[in-house]
């Protein structure tokens, strides 16, 4: 088996400051990798470099493409990378409004992604949109409503539907449950777990919420000051942390 994503020595600097430095890891099909660390630890920079939203200064991001096998997405042409962004990749933003078109109906938001990969039949697109609204537990009677009329949790679920409708193989998520009520978070986590399992998705989830990664991620990577300080099985890293910073992070969680 080939890793879906192989990252080698990825480095991004902002002038003299380090965004992320010398990050290497493999992500295997069906695996969810959590990246945790405090604000400014470089986790979002890393995610953006992986997803092609920012250009790294050094390193490789090898993605196992369907047609040609592993390709370095850093050196790939912009159109090729954008094509991946519409097909095999998906990006779930923390703020749903960054990942949705707020002036377009819910059905349109989901359908647009299908049209971007060539779907043209109106009936098929609408049926797929309705199917996906159902899967993310949005009543299909809301298909013609705009996201502005949705609650925060519904917007986030709509963003997920829009991202997953084209059957991606790798999903990048930036604080997917951030800013949501805990009750809404739980429902979203359950939904994401089910989708990962049923669609065999791989995902990279950036969050500062250790409870979220415990339930969602198979493996964990802990970042501090742009460096990866610890990696391992999620429950092992959280229950038996080895690095001083991870120990501090885990012991600082407030108990409910």
């Amino acid at each position: 088996m080939t890793p879906l994503l192989s990252v080698r020595s990825l480095t991004k600097r902002y002038g003299a400051r380090i965004g992320c430095a010398d990050v290497s890891f493999d992500l295997w099909p069906g695996e969810v990798l959590g990246i945790v660390g405090e604000s400014g630890s470089g986790k979002s920079t890393l995610l953006n470099c992986l997803a092609g939203h920012q250009a790294p200064d050094a390193g490789q991001v090898l993605f196992d493409t369907r047609a040609e096998g592993p390709r370095d997405t850093v050196t790939m042409s912009e159109p090729e990378r954008r094509m991946l962004g519409r097909t095999d990749w998906a990006f779930v933003h923390q703020h749903a409004r960054d990942g949705l078109r707020m002036g377009v109906s819910a059905g349109g938001n989901v359908g647009e992604r299908l049209m971007s990969v060539g779907a043209r039949h109106y009936g098929d697109i609408r049926a797929a949109a309705a199917d996906w609204l159902g899967r993310v537990e949005i009543d299909t009677s809301r298909i013609d409503d705009r996201p502005t009329q949705f609650s925060g949790g519904m917007q986030q679920r709509l963003q997920i539907a829009r991202n997953l409708v084209s059957g991606p193989r790798l999903v990048f998520m930036d604080e997917p449950t951030g800013g949501l009520d805990v009750s809404v978070q739980a429902r979203l986590l359950d939904l994401l777990r089910g989708l990962v399992r049923d669609m065999g998705l791989s995902a990279i989830v950036v969050t500062h919420d250790l409870a979220v990664v415990r339930l969602l991620a198979h493996r964990l990577m802990v970042m501090k000051d742009g460096h990866v300080v610890e990696t391992g099985l999620t429950d092992q890293v959280l229950d038996d942390p080895q690095h001083a910073y991870t120990q501090l992070l885990v012991s600082s969680v407030l108990q409910v």
Binding site: G232, L233, D235, Q236, D239, D240, Q242
Partner: peptide
């Protein structure tokens, strides 16, 4: 037991 499960290193 936790070491056997891989929960502790």
């Amino acid at each position: 037991m936790r070491m056997i499960y891989g929960n502790y290193l």
